[in-house]
Design a protein around this nucleic acid. Structure first.
Lengths: 125, 125
DNA sequence: CTAAATGCAAACTATTTGCAACGAT
DNA sequence: ATCGTTGCAAATAGTTTGCATTTAG
């Protein structure tokens, strides 16, 4: 693993948020890590493939990278896309039992409309 | 709902696969439905927002549209992206109980490597 | 007559890629 | 000397948008 790969991985691991490639790039810049955006993409792709990170897609938005590669889900507001991590008890076990497939990982996104956006919607009426 | 919207919806509902906007566009053409690609996108967006269809994103691939708007998940091969629908018993209930959030819908993607791709991988070694 | 829907081409965004230069082994 | 890594610019892919035109009510 190259030095830049390590630094990028560290940046993602140190953050509490899911970040887009662009956000990671900017944060790297701020931390004086000298890397181009193209390389950020390349490095993030490698890291995801190696299982050090997880790449997540939401409709209509740039992909984000998640430092947590263990089982968990996301609660996402359909309007503003704000995302909260969710832990589930025994979900892997339940899915395994119901599908019979020994899978690598699951991506569970629960869509709802957050309070903020609900209120906005009301106002617009 | 415009005539074209209805026709596009019908095309999606009639198909057993998840299709990309492009695939839907081509299928429409074949069925002599005269519509531009831009309008296919516009129509699919409206239909998704109205809850008649569901738009699904996978990393690295064009979004697909799912005729099934009821609770279900997808088993996706990480390599070839081939997708199979999955039904889960009581999953909504379980998620509701564990999160306490009365959500609109969930998107559950289970990632694995299908047999075909597993064999390919072996060969490459 | 007005508002909504459409086609076309252009714009846009996110992401990937070709290539030459660089760096470590 | 070789091979993976990088930066840059260009390419690509998917999707959206502005605008003039058509269509439906």
């Amino acid at each position: 693993m190259s030095k830049l790969s390590q630094q990028i991985l560290e940046i993602v691991k140190d953050s509490d948020k899911h970040m887009t490639a662009e956000e990671i790039f900017l944060l790297a810049k701020k931390k004086k890590v000298d890397i181009s955006l193209a390389s950020v993409y390349r490095v993030l792709n490698s890291l995801s493939e190696e299982g050090c990170l997880r790449r997540i897609s939401f409709s209509n938005k740039a992909d984000v990278y998640d430092k947590s590669v263990s089982d968990h889900g996301h609660l996402v507001c359909s309007k503003c896309k704000e995302t909260v991590d969710l832990e589930f008890k025994d979900l892997r076990k339940i899915l395994l039992k119901q599908t019979g497939v020994d899978f690598d990982y699951y991506e569970l996104t629960i869509n709802y409309v957050c309070e903020k956006c609900k209120r906005l919607k009301e106002k617009r009426k």
